[in-house]
Design a protein around this nucleic acid. Sequence first.
DNA 1: CCAAATGTACTGCCATATTGATACATTAGG
DNA 2: CCTAATGTATCAATATGGCAGTACATTTGG
Lengths: 125, 125
Amino acid sequence: MIVEIDPDAATPPYEQLRTQIAALIRTGGLAVGTRLPSIRQLARDLGLAAGTVARAYRELEAEGYLRGRAGQGTVVREIPRLSEAERTARLTDAARAYAAAVRELGIEVEVALTTAQYHLTHPAG
Amino acid sequence: MIVEIDPDAATPPYEQLRTQIAALIRTGGLAVGTRLPSIRQLARDLGLAAGTVARAYRELEAEGYLRGRAGQGTVVREIPRLSEAERTARLTDAARAYAAAVRELGIEVEVALTTAQYHLTHPAG
DNA sequence: CCAAATGTACTGCCATATTGATACATTAGG
DNA sequence: CCTAATGTATCAATATGGCAGTACATTTGG
C-alpha cells in the first residue's frame, strides 16, 4: 500500500492517512475485500504510533470504508455512499468556503469558476 | 458598525471579527477614513476581551486595511491590493481545497461548478 | 487449551492556539 | 503640564487536539 506521511504538514498524520486510504479505496487502488496492514505493522512502516493508525482506521470504519475485527485484521468493506442530504450539505459547505475566499481576494466570478474547473479536472495540478 | 460574534462557532472570535471588518471595508460598508470604535469600546459591545479585539485590529493593520495609533484611534486606511502572485497562490489553495472536497464526495464536475457559481453570485445563500 | 496476532479502549503527556488581564507608551485636549 | 483615552506589548491561564503508551478483549491456529 502506497501512502506517504509528511510529519511537517499542516494536516495531522492521522488525517493524512485517513484521506489517502479513502482515496485509494475510491479509485480502486484498494479493492473491496482487500486486507489492510495491521495497525502495528503500518505504524512501524510509517514511523507513527499505533494509536495514530488506529484512529485513522477507526474513522474510516465509522464512514463505512473499513471493517475491523480483533484477531482478523482490517478489511476494505465498501465504497460508502452518503445520503443525498449529507452530500449536498457538505458540498454547500465547501462551495461557501470557496466563495468566501474568492470574495475576500476580490476576484471575479469568471476567473474563480475557470480556476475551479481547472482544479476539478486536473487533480494533480 | 454591524458585527456579530458567535462564541460557539468553529472559527475563533478574533478571526470572525477580522473577517467581518475586512468584508465591510471591501464592500464599502466602512469607507476609507472612517474611524472604528476603540478597542475597549468594541470589546464591551461584543462581550469580548480587549485583547481579542486588539488582535483583530492588529492583523487587519498588518494586511493594510487599518491604521491604528495610540491616542488617535484606529482608522480605515485602504482596501489593500495583494500582489498578483499572492492572489493567485491563495486562489489556487482555495480551488484545490474545493476540488478535493468535491472529489471525496464523488460529485460530478458540472454539479460542482454550478454550485460554486451559485454561491459566488449569492453571497448570502 | 494456549499462544500469538489483532483491534479496542483508556489514560496521561505535550504542543499549540486563544483568551483574559495587566502594565506600558503615545497622543489629544484642557 | 497633566489627565484621559487610545493603541501596544507581554504574560499567565485555559482549552483543545494530537500523540504515545498501556492494558484489555477477541479471534485464529496449533
